[in-house]
Design a protein around this nucleic acid. Structure first.
Length: 704
DNA sequence: GAGCACTGC
């Protein structure tokens, strides 16, 4: 009770209740520490909004939904799951008594498939809308329609942490905006005078400098990826050893990124021992998802690794790009949570003002929209024209067309643009449409059990621990050796075999550990599989134990995958280059473990001309640098490429590429992975030399 | 000589 009174938002209770009473949509801007996430729902609950419906509060992340629900249940003095509950994938802790429900935005989106007017809700609060997740953006569009036409009783509240409130207000016909001040301490911004030659080195030097000169308080360094973090850790440790003993505080250097094992991550949440300073080197997780306490100094090189989707090729790319001004502000704010702090920006203020984008490009403008479009089609909204749907930031037209095209290719929509029966079935599955289509095809082909396993494994992040990746026999660790390799049928069959083997070992966690498998990912895959099996068959498929080494199963599996990825195959088959004559789509199989597709022929080989077209298609608009996987056939392809500056990328990390003058703003790096064998960056020049040498020796031999 | 930021159904 006491805690509640202290929160800034409670001083605005009357104003909020009044605004919500008079308007269908209200925007609430509340900085960190304002209490909006825990208090808004309670305020409206007290104002009587839970009498004829429930209050739904969306969160972009599962952990947030759970922890906030727990907190609010405690504040309201009841057990979790009754008056206050939460709902996330795999876990629904709500009951008939629930009046306030915290849920992930993805969960609300899924609910609306079956209740597109949000009838059970009297209020929907879209929290953290400034993060602009794909799901939030779609919900914004849907809620705008619903609040306007269908359900005038529904109240919608959008909350945002930045001054982006005006944009949301404008979108909702200039609805009122309520500003709630936060509880952040001032953060002093310090800019570099020039762009550093290497932001990594500069970050390390700055960290040491701060450590030596500044009073106690932890240091948070933002870098772009695991690789960089590890490099920085090594450099930091070296430099720390060189410091004179007793001249300054002790120091602990810690990494923080999402693929770290949970127990390693946990170290970041333990406070530093007395007389000791922590230097935490983190990716973007520390910007939004995880809050590290005790940070007083932030070092911000101004870069982030961002995923981009290219609708003309259907390919994803990851690239290191400048952060936006909003992100820079967010990062700096991390220094002012416990007391006044400092943020060292490793770029000049002129760069910040002139070169940084004001806000991050929203996810909806850099992802595949296949799933989103199918979702909207499923709702069967009257007068819905996808190409003119009222998004707050409309995606590229190409991206929408790409989505429609792909849906057409997997028979999810018909020529008339309407969703088909198959499409409805696909939409009900919590998967990207290609994988959903694969499952339905597998059902027909009699390999559903196997496909369920493969799809579940594909939905999980990589199952291999760092450093123990499969495929490379030369350096496969001893424990690893027992793991199946897919019998040359590629990753999918390998995943299947590994899962089956795990099952034979009674899903033993220790078995995963001793085989170098990520326990988290394996358990997740098992959960996903169970869920999918329930949706598809209302049966638990765990007992189905068909032989998986049979070639026929492998064949039908690949056929099923083919059906699912037909879109991408078809899409990137130009009509008059002879490509179509190579075979119908069942002869080409997509074998990539992640979502980016690559093509493989019947023998699991990757035809040169396919790669050629891949590269041409993907690079035409913007690429000058290409990362390739080492394969002998790469070299002749590279030689054929024109207007592409292929150079050695071996051993260069992202930041080194970035500092290289040749890699300008419009350059992107694409990592191609044929996925059946080794995956790595390659020194193109060396590969070329090796290839030519081998070719020469071969011709010599054959001529003898 | 070896990776892939971060979410979510």
């Amino acid at each position: 009770m006491e805690a509640r009174q202290l929160l800034p938002i409670n001083r605005y209770e009357e104003q909020i209740v009044e605004a919500v009473g008079k308007n269908r949509v209200v925007v609430v801007i509340g900085e960190t520490g304002s209490g909006k996430t825990t208090q808004l729902a309670q305020i409206l609950h007290r104002a009587g909004y839970t009498k004829d419906g429930i209050i739904g509060v969306t969160q972009p992340r599962r952990v947030a939904a759970v922890s906030v629900a727990r907190r609010v249940a405690w504040e309201m003095g009841g057990p979790l799951g009754e008056e206050v509950g939460y709902s996330i994938r795999f876990e629904d802790r709500t009951s008939r008594a629930t009046r306030i429900k915290y849920l992930t935005d993805g969960c609300l989106l899924r609910e609306c498939l079956f209740d597109y007017e949000f009838k059970q809700y009297s209020v929907i609060i879209l929290d953290e809308a400034h993060e602009r997740s794909l799901n939030t953006d779609i919900l914004l569009g849907l809620l705008k329609r619903v609040a306007q036409n269908r359900n005038p009783e529904l109240k919608v509240i959008i909350t945002s942490a930045t001054l982006d409130g005006q944009k949301f207000s404008d979108y909702f016909y200039r609805c009122p905006v309520i500003n709630v001040p936060g509880k952040l301490y001032p953060v002093q911004l310090l800019y570099s005078t020039e762009v550093p030659y290497s932001y990594l080195e500069s970050a390390v030097e700055t960290a040491i400098d701060v450590h030596v000169r500044e009073p106690e308080g932890d240091i948070l360094v933002f870098l772009t990826g695991q690789d960089e973090i590890e490099k920085a850790l090594r450099m930091l440790e070296e430099k720390v050893l060189m410091l004179e003993e007793g001249s300054c505080l002790d120091v602990i250097v810690l990494p923080l990124h999402a693929s770290l094992a949970p127990e390693v991550q946990a170290r970041v949440f333990q406070a530093a021992p007395p007389n000791c300073r922590r230097i935490i080197v983190a990716t973007n997780v520390a910007e939004t998802s995880l809050t590290v306490d005790g940070v007083v100094y932030v070092i911000d090189p101004g870069f982030v690794k961002q995923r981009n989707y290219n609708p003309t090729t259907g390919m994803d790319s990851l690239s290191v790009v400048r952060i936006s001004r909003v992100q820079a502000t967010q990062r700096a704010g991390r220094a002012g949570r416990t007391r006044p702090g400092k943020c060292y920006r490793l770029y000049p203020i002129s760069a910040y003002e002139e070169e940084f984008l004001p806000a991050t490009v929203p996810e909806i403008q850099r992802s595949s929209l296949t799933g989103a479009v199918l979702h909207l089609k499923f709702l069967d909204l009257p007068n819905l024209d996808i190409l003119h749907f009222d998004f707050i930031d409309p995606p590229l037209r190409e991206s929408l067309e790409d989505a429609l095209y792909q849906l057409l290719a997997i028979d999810a929509i018909g020529q008339d643009g309407k969703i088909t029966g198959l499409g409805k079935h696909i939409a009900e599955l919590p998967l990207e449409p290609a994988l959903g289509r694969t499952l339905l095809a597998a059902e027909d082909l009699g390999c559903l059990s196997q496909a369920l396993t493969v799809v579940a494994m594909l939905s999980s992040e990589t199952i291999f621990m760092q450093g123990s990746r499969k495929g490379d026999d030369r350096k496969r660790s001893r424990e690893d050796q027992q793991l199946p390799d897919g019998n040359k049928y590629g990753d999918h069959v390998q995943y299947l075999q590994i899962f089956e083997l795990w099952k034979k070992n009674n899903f033993d966690i220790k078995w995963c550990r001793s085989n170098g498998l990520q326990i988290r990912s394996m358990l997740f895959a098992k959960d996903v599989r169970r869920q999918l099996a329930l949706i598809l068959t209302r049966k638990n498929f765990e007992d189905d134990d068909r032989a998986t080494k049979k070639i026929s199963t492998a064949r039908s599996l690949r056929k099923a995958l083919c059906q699912g990825f037909a879109c991408r195959l078809a899409q990137r088959m130009p009509k008059h280059n002879g490509y179509h004559t190579v075979g119908n789509k069942s002869q080409l199989v997509q074998l990539h473990p992640a979502t980016s597709p690559l093509l493989v022929d019947e023998d699991g080989l990757y035809p040169e001309w396919v790669l050629y077209h891949e590269l041409m298609a993907s690079t035409r608009p913007f690429l000058r640098h290409v990362c390739v996987v080492e394969k002998d056939w790469v070299v002749p392809i590279l030689e054929k490429l024109q207007n592409i500056n292929v150079r050695s990328l071996s051993g260069l990390s992202a930041h080194e590429l970035q500092k290289d003058q040749a890699l300008g703003e419009d350059n992107k790096v694409v990592l191609l992975k044929p996925s059946d064998q080794e995956t790595r960056l390659v020194d193109v020049d060396a590969a070329r030399a090796r290839f030519l040498a081998r070719k020469q020796s071969k011709t010599v031999k054959s001529s003898r």
